[in-house]
Design a protein around this nucleic acid. Structure first.
Lengths: 213, 213
DNA sequence: CCTTGACACGAACATCTGTTCGCTCGTATA
DNA sequence: TATACGAGCGAACAGATGTTCGTGTCAAGG
């Protein structure tokens, strides 16, 4: 009974959701039929009934456009607002999050949740200044989204502050015995080797974003 | 002209809002008429027109339940759904958009509108395969969002198909006299010079996206 | 007293839109 | 082979719903 949705049923469900977002009211059977290139209204009717039995939609009989999405995740819940707290550049440390007044931050970026993972705690964004992270395929003007954390698993890409070098960098992190290897994402570039007391992990890379004007 | 709403108009507006919350779809003229004890549908029609001129609702003519609340849409309209239509790699052309059946595409990415600009027409997304575009700071697994177009202004970053080389690449575009210069984003790398008949513009780069797992 | 404009009325009309029904096709299952 | 069933098809039907139009009321202004 709880079989998977057919491709057509999924397409219909997606269509209804999109239509609702765009128009503020649900589509008719014929609109679904036409836009999805279905030959007959009765096919749409048939599949809508399946969707209703799966409890994915509710149908109001004899009412035009009487389709409701049951689990309607509102569009707003799919979006997370991430504060853009400052800049990141090679020669300066990250802004200290605790010193950033949340009320002061009026710059935010919005991303859909599937880009940043489920838990949106500790997320913050920085605009990249300069080309110091070009080895991580990150250029001037890009936006990086980080998750605040002080430790890192091997292989994670993290933003670190190198105490001796007085420098911020973004590298893959590997703890190897009593030294630490910081590996650029670009395979053609050489890694940095240093000691644990020299690295201060600032956060883990979650997303990189480049918007071309 | 900007007079206050009549009592009846306010009642209708409230009713629409309540109805929308309860049912997920807008009311018909007759439902408004009946529940508000109005004697004629034309009275409702008349007042709906007034509300529309006040820009409080939008009416979609000849469509049943075609009433939208204007203020309500702003919250939902922040996200655009972009179809992920395929892959992009050096050795193969882009998928032909016209051949992609919209109903088949069940993979989408969602971005907030301010990342892609206002008009969301012609937008499509591709997953990057391989490192052929590393000179544009784009790596394996990244997602690029493009806007379909056949021509380009100087300086725009475009996806082009090089006919002779049988290759897809992503470069800044410059038309210089009777030749074309394709400039990598990475300043340390050399440009490509070629002739107009060799380049086939596929689309303009809008956004680059990298989600780190 | 007459005109004008906002607002309201009711009925007829024309679509829009959901529903139903007989039929086909392919894949299992008995 | 016979039967059942999910899925799809096309057409006709009936009810739901927006539109139009002639008419009526009333207060404001000339």
């Amino acid at each position: 009974m709880p079989r998977a949705l057919s491709q057509r049923q999924r397409a219909i469900l997606d269509y209804i959701e999109r239509f609702l977002d765009e128009n503020g009211y649900p589509p008719t059977i014929r609109e679904i039929q036409h836009d999805l290139n279905i030959s007959s209204t009765s096919v749409v009717d048939y599949n809508l009934n399946v969707l209703e039995q799966r409890n994915l939609i509710r149908r109001n009989r004899n009412i035009s456009r009487g389709i409701e999405l049951v689990g309607r995740r509102s569009a707003e819940k799919r979006v997370v607002r991430i504060p853009l707290v400052g800049q990141i550049a090679a020669g300066q440390p990250l802004p200290v999050l605790e010193e950033v007044d949340p009320a002061t931050v009026n710059d935010h970026i919005e991303l859909s949740v599937d880009l940043v993972g489920r838990s949106q705690d500790g997320l913050f964004a920085l605009r990249v200044n300069g080309f110091s992270m070009i080895d991580a395929l990150i250029g001037d003007g890009d936006i990086v989204v980080l998750r605040r954390q002080q430790t890192a698993e091997n292989g994670e890409t993290v933003a670190v502050w190198l105490r001796r070098e007085q420098e911020t960098t973004l590298k893959r992190f590997y703890h190897e015995g009593d030294r630490i290897r910081l590996q650029p994402a670009n395979a053609t570039m050489a890694p940095i080797y240093t000691t644990p007391d020299n690295v201060e992990i600032q956060g883990k890379l979650v997303t990189v974003l480049r918007s071309v004007s």
